[in-house]
Write a protein that binds this DNA or RNA. Structure first.
Lengths: 152, 152
DNA sequence: CTGTGTGCAAACATTTTGCAAGCAG
DNA sequence: CTGCTTGCAAAATGTTTGCACACAG
């Protein structure tokens, strides 16, 4: 699997075009706009949110939410985007070009600190191997009280 | 928050009854049967799966899936059960009386393997310390493809 | 030109809500 | 008795599919 971390928009776009060509799929305005919107707003989007933002930013392009779903699934299947599940609240998607990180979350003030720890990631691989899983992703969130809130 | 790890069924039931009494809620056959079925099948259930199993095990009790949803939410709100999200595939629930563990989840078939790794938990503590957080909890889910699905 | 992509509406799947009847306390 | 609880049906929510027209290659 190709590593997409830290790609610029143009590089990401090339990646997307290559993938489309390889599968005899077509490069359309809708697909381009969705990728661009995801890139320009380094955020986690629900399909609905993304749909509304695209509609707002490109009012002349009469995009349908169906296309947003189809494109997000296409991007995810090809590892250009990834999603996190939220129960019946649905999924949130983000591009795969950001460096990997996990979250340390303060339960009192909601502050989020990003961190990365290779040692843990290696142990996670090891655990997956033991169970014969091919690891594709992980979610690690540590909950606690930050220093500031401990002092209050 | 009360610690429910390793409680027997009777203790769990007492916990549940106390909770119901405290909130002027009623102890019904349906609620008892749902708790019991969760306990006797130390498994992760979707509401649908649990509903079908209860129907099968108690054919005389004409239970509705609505009640299963309502009871699972009640149990979760009161920390007697907890759930994991699966995008549009919904949630899976398990009782909270079991020793701490994390989850390895197959993205294709939804199968869940439990694991526990002290080394990782110690590293998590260390990370929290570096950022001056007092750790209270964590969520760690590894996503991958299980051996069976890799073969397909 | 050919066949993929699109938007729309309808279908689906999962979960929640409104309601009248049932039953625990 | 009182009012919480239940099952049913309908609604709500989120996502996918069928179709005829549009358009990229």
């Amino acid at each position: 699997m190709k590593k997409l971390e830290n790609l610029s928009y143009d590089e990401l776009l090339e990646e997307f075009k290559t993938l489309l060509k390889k599968n005899a799929l077509k490069f359309t305005t809708q697909r381009e706009v969705i990728l661009k919107t995801l890139y320009e707003n380094q955020n986690h989007f629900t399909p609905e949110n993304l749909y509304l933002l695209v509609k707002q930013n490109y009012p002349d392009l009469n995009i349908g939410i169906t296309t947003v779903y189809r494109t997000l699934n296409l991007l995810e299947e090809n590892n250009i985007a990834s999603s996190i599940s939220f129960g019946q609240a649905g999924k949130k998607f983000e591009l795969s070009n950001r460096p990997h990180h996990d979250h340390l979350i303060c339960e009192k003030c909601g502050d989020i600190v990003e961190f990365h720890n290779d040692e843990i990631e290696q142990l996670q691989e090891k655990i997956a191997n033991i169970h014969n899983f091919k690891l594709t992703d992980h979610l690690m969130q540590l909950y606690g009280i930050c220093q500031k809130c401990q002092e209050d």
